[in-house]
């Protein structure tokens, strides 16, 4: 079958330094992947097309790129799954949130810098075992779900926080941090969790789920970040707006069954955070004018007692 690819091209040695799209028609089969198509273009049609790729089996992490606007591995994306029904082309762009070097090749240095920032190596205690460390199989199987991350950068490409704030460590580095934090052999939690509690750390995730959607290996970075948040708070780091927000949220629900949206921002930012409080004023005026101001007097839900019981039950299990 004939497949049309619309590929973003960029030549850093050109005079205008502007990217553009180029279309290619390629003959492929039902079982072909996007990477098969791009390699065919590169080998038979246009040798100047540049991309990274190697294993063809979704294990080396080289070929993450945007396919029809969403990050994925070219090598395990089947043509038939992404080819538009109306005959329009498959759009191929470089991974997002990283500077483009040439065509589909992006600069991974910011990615590796964040990877290195979480000190991604096992930090065991002082006592070295004679042989291997004894560790439960279920822990290892659980960790295997994160260790299977191939560092392809698909999650970073489509992270909506990184789009506006490049100080965020990002889903890949944080999943890596979780991998060590959760390892029964690692004893550096105090210091790891304190670092992850800082700005740019676990609290900067907006839980948009994008990283979970695009991860080609089922690593679920966002879920790992949420587990890290729990660990950070359990370690006593409650003095961030993120931790206060989570605590306030739980407190309202437990006591009344409702979210008190009027008090939530105050409790999250802290009442003495004058700058943040002033910053909230325009939002308050806007919502008042739009008739969407939350009620001043907070009511209890009729079934609040039941909800409280659920909370108590969960808390007693912790």
């Amino acid at each position: 079958m004939e497949v049309i690819f619309k590929v973003q091209r960029f030549d850093p040695e050109s005079t205008d330094l502007v990217s553009h799209f180029q279309e290619y028609n390629v003959q492929l089969t039902d079982s072909s992947t996007v990477l098969d198509g791009l390699i065919k273009i590169r080998e038979e049609d246009d040798g100047t097309l540049s991309l990274r790729c190697s294993c063809r089996a979704a294990i080396c992490g080289s070929c993450a790129m945007r396919i029809n606007g969403e990050a994925g591995l070219a090598c395990n994306t089947k043509i038939i799954d992404v080819m538009p029904q109306d005959g329009s082309p498959i759009v191929i762009e470089p991974a997002g949130n990283l500077p483009v070097i040439k065509d589909l090749i992006v600069d991974f240095q910011p990615f590796w810098a964040k990877f290195k920032a979480v000190e991604p190596w096992l930090q065991p205690g002082d006592i070295q075992p004679e042989g291997e460390y004894i560790a439960p199989e279920e822990d290892m199987v659980h960790l295997a779900g994160v260790v299977s991350c191939i560092l392809c950068g698909a999650c970073v490409s489509d992270c909506t926080v990184l789009e506006v704030d490049d100080s965020f460590l990002g889903p890949a580095a944080l999943a890596k941090a979780y991998r060590f934090s959760r390892d029964p052999r690692d004893e550096s939690d105090d210091q790891r969790l304190a670092q992850l509690n800082e700005p740019g750390g676990v609290w900067d995730c907006t839980r948009c789920m994008k990283c979970v959607e695009v991860c080609p290996k089922g690593v679920d970075p966002m879920d790992r970040i949420m587990l890290l948040r729990e660990k950070v708070m359990d370690a006593g780091h409650n003095n961030t707006s993120g931790a206060r927000h989570a605590n306030a949220f739980a407190k309202f629900l437990k006591n009344s069954g409702w979210l008190d949206e009027l008090k939530l921002p105050v409790m999250s930012f802290g009442i003495f955070n004058i700058k943040a409080m002033i910053g909230l004023i325009p939002l308050g005026i806007k919502s008042q004018l739009a008739g969407k101001r939350p009620p001043i007097f907070h009511h209890k839900l009729s079934s609040a007692k039941e909800i409280k019981k659920i909370f108590e039950k969960v808390e007693s299990k912790k």
Binding site: W121, Q128, G131, Y133, E137, V141, V147
Partner: peptide
């Protein structure tokens, strides 16, 4: 193999938590 485990490799285990 033991060196790799000590450096951080998460080998699958047996029921006693030793390398499987």
């Amino acid at each position: 193999v033991i060196s790799m485990e000590n450096m951080g490799a998460i080998f699958n285990r047996d029921e006693n938590g030793n390398l499987g």
